Amino acid sequence: MRADTFHDFELAALALYAQAPLRTRYVAKYRHKDAKLVLKCIRYKTDKLQDLNKFERLNRALMAQMQQNPLDLNKAEHDKQELRDGAGAAAGAERSPKAAKKTKKRR
């Protein structure tokens, strides 16, 4: 089976895994030479950068299902964004210019 859009692929992959979790295999391959991401369980090829973010989201959902721990994807994306925003602000506030100079240099 081949999916034309990532949304169709995502729905089909999740449904396939829910239907037969012990018989479902999921393979992701990135061909740098062609700059293409190939996802196999239901075949889907893409060369769009936006689909890589969608792939990460799908991968997290499948991993959560494999661990018998359903994941709310919208909540996970929101938490991830909060961590990014909080970590960047906290790291900048904690470091002073003197503290950065005292770090040991590698040779």
Results as ranks from 00 to 15, higher is better:
23 R>L: 15
89 A>N: 05
99 A>R: 04
20 A>M: 06
74 N>I: 02
17 Y>W: 12
39 L>G: 00
25 R>K: 14
63 M>L: 11
6 F>G: 00
95 R>S: 13
92 G>N: 15
96 S>N: 10
10 E>Q: 15
48 K>H: 13
82 E>H: 07
83 L>W: 03
36 K>Y: 07
48 K>M: 12
46 T>D: 12
16 L>T: 11
48 K>C: 03
8 D>W: 05
46 T>A: 11
32 H>I: 00
2 R>F: 14
45 K>A: 11
33 K>C: 08
79 D>C: 05
36 K>G: 02
1 M>D: 10
9 F>V: 00
78 H>L: 09
26 Y>I: 03
25 R>V: 03
50 Q>C: 05
85 D>V: 06
40 K>E: 10
61 A>H: 08
39 L>W: 04
42 I>K: 00
2 R>C: 05
81 Q>L: 08
76 A>W: 03
78 H>S: 12
107 R>L: 12
36 K>F: 09
21 P>A: 06
46 T>C: 10
81 Q>F: 01
61 A>C: 12
4 D>Q: 08
7 H>I: 01
47 D>C: 08
97 P>A: 12
72 D>N: 15
76 A>H: 10
61 A>T: 06
106 R>A: 07
45 K>M: 06
27 V>E: 13
40 K>V: 15
102 K>D: 13
59 N>D: 15
62 L>G: 10
5 T>L: 15
47 D>Q: 14
79 D>G: 06
70 P>H: 09
88 G>R: 10
96 S>W: 02
59 N>Y: 14
39 L>F: 10
1 M>E: 09
7 H>T: 06
28 A>Y: 12
63 M>T: 12
64 A>S: 15
83 L>A: 14
6 F>N: 01
104 K>M: 08
102 K>S: 12
33 K>V: 03
70 P>A: 09
102 K>A: 11
71 L>P: 02
41 C>W: 11
4 D>H: 05
94 E>D: 09
80 K>C: 06
84 R>H: 05
20 A>N: 09
36 K>W: 03
51 D>N: 15
8 D>R: 05
44 Y>E: 07
51 D>P: 00
1 M>K: 07
